[in-house]
Design a protein around this nucleic acid. Structure first.
Lengths: 173, 173
DNA sequence: GCTCAACTTGCACTCAGTGCAAGTTATGCC
DNA sequence: GGCATAACTTGCACTGAGTGCAAGTTGAGC
């Protein structure tokens, strides 16, 4: 797929290479996209770990930054593969959205009771974090390793610096 | 589609209702999604107008806010239709992404020479504006008109208030 | 009435994806 | 070993999206 493009590789090609039947393929993957973009089954556990590791008093914005860094660090290999496929087939741009949605749902769920922000404001903060990761990806030179992505993400978080808002919106202390 | 869901309406249904052949349908629409999500052919002109109307010295963040408000105001009818289809068929969540991409490309292109920010920072600011609109939509009660969306968008822009950054990054004055 | 271009259509085809029923394999129990 | 059962695999037939091609239709201009 990285060589020929996503469309030029049919499901028949895949099952022939894998030595299984067409039907078996669809027992395991909902569609062709899933081969590349399906989540690791123990992703949710990883997210839980990352979120659970944040210390109690940490500002939300810092937690979000560290969770994004940790997330990309742990999924680096898959991200690079997906990046290669997407580079060859730009029409797949929106493809891992669903997985990402689930990740950010988990983040929102975790953040809501901690941050004391209402629905829409929470949507905005978490949305900003997501946007920073999203904006960083095209500027990341993947061949130089995941560190480059991390520093872009940190720059992004510094640029918006939600922490200032937190002091006026947090309810805890 | 808003009643039965997107998948339950086949292209055959559409062409039967429209009184044209299947083949003719595909001469005008690249795929079934296009029926609902294709851009208006004179959208780019509208964008150009909105962007061109911004006064010279206006802070970028304010311009972006007003452009988003103007954009949603002009496309209210289509947005409401798309919202209804999406509500019935959530799997289409990422569907108008391509059109939106073109809009935000235009915004970036317009903003770059004005704002004096580099690629990544521009990506972040414009990405933030886009995220604010995106975050506002699910909280918008469409039945109450477009005004509700506008006030959510304004709240979003106030929440991040990029203007403060502008003073330290702008090159013009 | 003729010509040419634009548009429409039917047909045959490829590929994705699904439901069903039958076949195969593995497991555990007597 | 023999057997019941569940899990997995497969083939088959089908629907629906989307495309290439070649033929037919329409309409405007001369």
């Amino acid at each position: 797929m990285t060589e020929r493009g996503f469309d030029a590789v049919s499901v028949d090609d895949i099952v022939a290479a894998a030595g299984v039947s067409r039907r078996t393929f669809f027992n395991y993957f909902a569609d062709k996209e899933s081969v590349v973009f399906d989540p690791d089954p123990d992703d949710p556990a990883l997210w839980g770990e990352l979120l659970g590791a944040r210390p109690g008093g940490e500002p939300l914005w810092v937690s979000l930054r560290e969770v994004v860094v940790g997330y990309t660090g742990a999924c680096a290999e898959r991200m690079i593969l997906q990046r290669r496929v997407r580079l060859a087939s730009p029409e797949l741009a929106g493809c891992s959205r669903e997985v990402a949605d689930r990740f950010w749902d988990a983040v929102r769920e975790w953040a809501a009771p901690r941050a004391g922000v209402d629905g829409f404001e929470l949507e905005l903060v978490v949305g900003a974090a997501r946007m920073i990761l999203h904006a960083s990806c095209p500027y990341w030179d993947a061949s130089a390793g995941i560190g480059g992505l991390h520093s872009l993400v940190r720059t992004g978080f510094d640029t918006f610096d939600w922490t200032r808002h937190e002091s006026r919106t947090s309810v805890g202390s």
